[in-house]
Write a protein that binds this DNA or RNA. Structure first.
Lengths: 165, 165
DNA sequence: CTTGGAAAGTCAACAAAGCTGACATAAGTT
DNA sequence: AACTTATGTCAGCTTTGTTGACTTTCCAAG
């Protein structure tokens, strides 16, 4: 009873196919975070610190509010993380030039070193997965992920893409 | 400096491409969990309950140890979740027939109803993403995710796939 | 048939990381 | 001068993970 197809080829999707996609997301995300988690486990940091470091590295000089929007957590939650990173000398928080209410965040050399260590590990896994899946798969992967995002997040994701070359 | 290619076409991957893949995973996972989280937020349950319910529904009669391996958490952590589900009459835990030390877990009618509510929401999003991305993209999506898993998890994922038709 | 080990459950204590609500301060904006 | 925005902080709570210690049950090997 799974032979009929939609208007476009292969767009008939059984619940079983969707279920497998859901489980693939779950297991893949475990792998996705496994390497950074292992590294962070040896320090006093966790996944939340990784995320902050990642996006500060990605957009140096970004503000707290911007980070808040990207991460989708509360000010209090982010602040706890950010404060330890600043105190430990991994992140530099300086008063904004134009708007002095804002804080411009960037990594210190120590912060950049940790960022590199974390993202090297994560990129290595991503690279291996891309290689194993092949070039055609990569485009599809990205398309499905993008379509799965909430519209707000998709906008932020695309903004990040454009910000880089 | 990005001209050289690997043995197979397009397998030269810039750090920027990999970085975008990483961010796509992050934002997509937010979307992936958003709908169930919203539903669960109205009850006394969280994501951990959802995961337990999902895999019990998926493999009725599964044991605690098996669930432990799939979820990758500690016995104590799972037990807390499982106990509330059993106490609330959503999960039925019965002594194993062959090995009486084991507990065979399955959803009660109430549990199945919640499971359906949660997975309907999640499947709807997955279906929309698949449709938006198109049939070719779906295969690539699955291939990359599978390649990103830890070997253990990949095995469990494939086992789950085979278990169903 | 005893003993060793596996499966499951439980208690206690703790940590990471999220949340709400309330409030303070500084600095733009109207 | 009044309003709003950006940030930071205090306090308290929840969920979900962790270790470690211990018990009960029960299969299986000697």
């Amino acid at each position: 009873m799974a032979e009929v197809q939609g208007g476009e080829a292969l767009l008939f999707l059984t619940d079983e196919q969707l279920q497998q996609g859901i489980e693939a997301m779950f297991f893949a995300y475990q792998g996705f975070t496994a390497d950074p988690d292992r590294i962070l486990g040896t320090m006093a940091y966790g996944r939340a610190h990784h995320r902050a470091i990642h996006f500060i590295a990605r957009k140096p000089g970004t503000t707290v509010t911007n980070l808040l929007n990207i991460l989708g957590v509360t000010k209090q939650s982010l602040n706890r993380v950010l404060r330890t990173l600043v105190d430990d000398g991994l992140v530099d928080s300086r008063v904004g030039k134009v708007d002095k209410r804002e804080r411009n965040l960037q990594l210190t050399p120590d912060g950049a070193a940790l960022e590199r260590q974390l993202s090297d590990a994560q990129r290595a896994r991503m690279r291996a997965a891309y290689r194993a899946a092949g070039p055609g798969a990569v485009a599809g992967f990205r398309q499905v992920l993008e379509a799965m995002m909430d519209p707000d997040m998709r906008r932020r994701y695309q903004t990040l893409r454009e910000a880089q070359s």
